[in-house]
């Protein structure tokens, strides 16, 4: 990863008494896929709009590649940016191709790029159909194609997989991986935390207009010190033996289910628990260890 290309310093946005964004500092590095997650109303979209220069900050400063996005050279800055808004709304009476021609002219890009962008998101077949005939997923893909026009170096993606089917979501992230390999910096928001936890390089958790935590998913897990979860599959008559084997170890409350037990334990005791269970031999039919999910981390910080 390179140096920071998006830098926010003490950014505030106030709407009367409401502090939508309250003293945010961010450094997003060149070529990374950065996630911004938070509840509805946490300030993500406001932060996005300020980073894009759509609304001014009440206080503080945001710089993209060292320049203010709404400053004197805003055109040059915006030509390096692609933006896919949440619930993208395009023009119903234009075809997919005409839509991209319109945005390519605004971006100062050759309209010839439009066909390639449609191909990339899998809409080449629907290029000459009116947008009003597109499904929600197709509109979302067209919006993504629009964001890719002009080969932007920075992409802002607000809930980009909303309305996409699983196959389209997989294709979408395949494109993001390719873009990352080309050095494109991406900022993404999503409500589907399981979807982004394995895909982002780093993320920030926003609540009530503030960044509660930021870093890699693994670093945040460690920072929260959340337990690992063992699932021990065994017969009910062996539940007592498992409990006895773990009795001398510092594990959390063991929960019994129909055919398995769940055991929370801190990371440093992981190997000791595995050894204790291994000593039970064939009485343990299966064992899985689950890392705390991004959702666990998110709720840990936001609560």
């Amino acid at each position: 990863m390179g140096s920071a290309v998006i830098v926010a310093r003490s950014v505030h946005k106030h709407y009367g008494p409401i502090h939508a964004v309250d003293g945010v500092d961010l450094d997003i590095r060149a070529g990374e896929l950065f996630g911004l997650i938070g509840h509805n109303g946490a300030g993500k979209s406001t932060m996005f709009k300020m980073m894009l220069g759509l609304i001014p900050a009440t206080a503080g400063e945001i710089r993209i590649d060292g320049a203010q996005v709404s400053g004197g050279n805003f055109r040059a800055v915006r030509r390096t940016i692609g933006y896919l808004p949440e619930n993208v709304v395009l023009y119903d009476n234009l075809t997919g191709l005409e839509t991209l021609h319109f945005f390519s002219r605004l971006k100062g890009v050759s309209p010839a790029e439009s066909g390639a962008a449609l191909e990339r998101v899998g809409l080449a077949q629907a290029a000459r159909r009116r947008v009003r005939e597109y499904s929600k997923g197709m509109r979302q893909r067209l919006g993504f194609a629009q964001a890719l026009l002009g080969k932007p170096r920075i992409l802002f993606l607000d809930e980009p997989t909303s309305g996409l089917d699983p196959e389209a979501i997989r294709s979408f992230y395949a494109i993001l991986r390719q873009l990352r390999s080309e050095g494109v910096t991406m900022v993404i928001t999503s409500h589907i935390l399981a979807e982004i936890q394995e895909r982002v390089d780093r993320l920030a958790i926003m609540t009530a207009g503030k960044i509660q935590a930021s870093g890699t998913v693994q670093a945040l897990r460690e920072q929260m010190d959340l337990p690992l979860w063992f699932t021990v599959r065994t017969a009910q008559e062996d539940f007592a033996a498992v409990r006895a084997a773990l009795a001398h170890l510092p594990v959390g409350a063991i929960e019994a289910h129909a055919d398995h037990l769940t055991v929370p334990c801190q990371r440093e005791n992981k190997m000791a628990v595995i050894e204790a269970l291994a000593a039970l031999g064939g009485r343990v039919r299966d064992l899985t260890v689950r890392e705390p999910s991004l959702e666990d981390v998110f709720f840990g910080f936001s609560d």
Binding site: A76, P85, F103, L106, K107
Partner: peptide, 13 residues
């Protein structure tokens, strides 16, 4: 109201 203004404003215009 339709939500297309933000996208338009994000362009170099």
């Amino acid at each position: 109201e339709r939500g297309s203004l933000d996208l338009l404003l994000s362009m170099p215009i």
